[in-house]
Amino acid sequence: MRIRAAVGRDGIVEVRVLMSHEMESGQRTEAGAVVPAWFINQVTATHNGRTVMTAQWGPAVSKNPYFAFKFRGGKAGDKISLRWTDNRNETRTDEATIA
């Protein structure tokens, strides 16, 4: 994942994330056969050990998902961690430092 996090006005941290994932919709066919759905369905953002945002996604989120969100209470130098789980129960976690 590429994670950019920065403290903006009013001490609100803006986080922008790019994830690498096929996000296969389950609607597409290849040589007459339906390509099974394969997509990130849960995302969790954690700041210093506390969860600040969670999301449930369907297969209609675009390939290589972009996700931007904001939260309060973070400062420069803190760690922000993002974790996704897909419908095959694979998971990935990445961390970044707030600028």
Binding site: I12, V52, A60, V61, S62, Y66, A68, F71, R72
Partner: peptide, 14 residues
Amino acid sequence: ILPDAVADVATRIK
């Protein structure tokens, strides 16, 4: 939107 989160999100969809 957990207590410290801001209700402002963005993504890209199909």
